[in-house]
């Protein structure tokens, strides 16, 4: 595991720092990482989220200084996660014990996505929303069309802008999701939404709602939101993290850490 990792999402940078190494040592790595990523990140206004360790005011200021010096990115806000990685782990383990599961705790979830593991709060229970059943729809869901399912929903096609998906379980789009998707419609907090090409207008999971940012980036992207060159390519997932909708690349790590299946 690298001590410093940078992940880009559409409107921000997630900086993952190892909590076991002194900050002064980390700084060199941070400088190096941002220098490498400078071209990649481009010149835009972004938010910064620090994960993995808690930074003091001074350390945070230093990180911002490094970013300003080595990239063209303009950091407009800094978000902090409550609690360190350790606390997240503790919570995770405690809940595991409570659930009475005697399965060995899964190998320490990678530092890159600590929050996701906190979503594993219902580990002992059947965590897959309506996994036994799914509605499979073949074809494109076009503007004005709506598909509602009490089970999870699998779309073999595109969901165009103006198309609507509503599912009590999770939603999987094996194509482009450019319309609206509402997973966990009856309140399932563990429902998630996955798409091969993830550019929805609006995403809702349980009570949370997220609206696509008004993208001003790629020129062709402004037409349909489809070709916008955001940093994550390929399949992405949206899921709930403490009541907020988060999105990330859909990787085997996501599957491993979530115990959905």
């Amino acid at each position: 595991m690298e001590p410093v990792m940078i992940k880009g999402v559409k409107s921000g940078i997630v900086l993952v720092l190892d909590s076991g190494i002194p900050f002064e040592q980390l700084k060199e790595d941070i400088v190096q990482k941002f220098t490498e990523a400078s071209a990649f990140l481009g010149k835009s206004k972004m938010g910064l989220m620090v994960r993995g360790r808690l930074l003091t005011e001074e350390q945070e200021a230093e990180v911002l200084k490094i970013i300003a010096a080595h990239t063209d990115v303009d950091i407009v806000c800094v978000m902090k996660e409550d609690g360190s990685l350790d606390q997240t782990f503790e919570k995770y383990v405690a809940q595991r014990k409570k659930a009475g599961s005697d399965l060995p705790v899964h190998a320490a979830p990678a530092v890159s996505q600590p929050v996701i593991s906190s979503a594993g709060t219902v580990l002992g229970q059947a965590a897959v929303p309506s996994s036994g059943n799914a509605l499979i729809y073949k074809g494109n869901v076009r503007s004005g069309q709506s598909i509602r399912s009490e089970h999870s929903l699998i779309i073999l096609g595109d969901v165009n802008p103006g198309g609507n998906l509503v599912s009590d379980g999770s939603i999987f789009v094996m194509g482009s999701l450019l319309g609206n998707a509402f997973a966990g419609a009856t309140g399932n907090q563990d429902a998630f939404i996955m798409a091969n090409d993830f550019h929805p207008l609006q995403v809702r999971i349980s009570d949370a709602i997220a609206v696509s940012p008004n993208e001003e980036g790629g020129r062709s992207g402004k037409f349909l939101g489809k070709h916008n060159r955001n940093i994550i390519r390929g399949p992405e997932v949206a899921y709930l993290v403490s009541g907020q909708i988060a999105r990330s690349a859909y990787t085997d790590q996501f599957v491993k850490e979530n115990h959905f299946f």
Binding site: G139, N140, R142, S143, G144, Q145, N160, P161, G162, L224
Partner: peptide, 12 residues
């Protein structure tokens, strides 16, 4: 394009 999409849906 949005309206065309709607129309195609109705035609389908």
């Amino acid at each position: 394009v949005r309206d065309a999409d709607r129309i195609i849906g109705l035609l389908e």
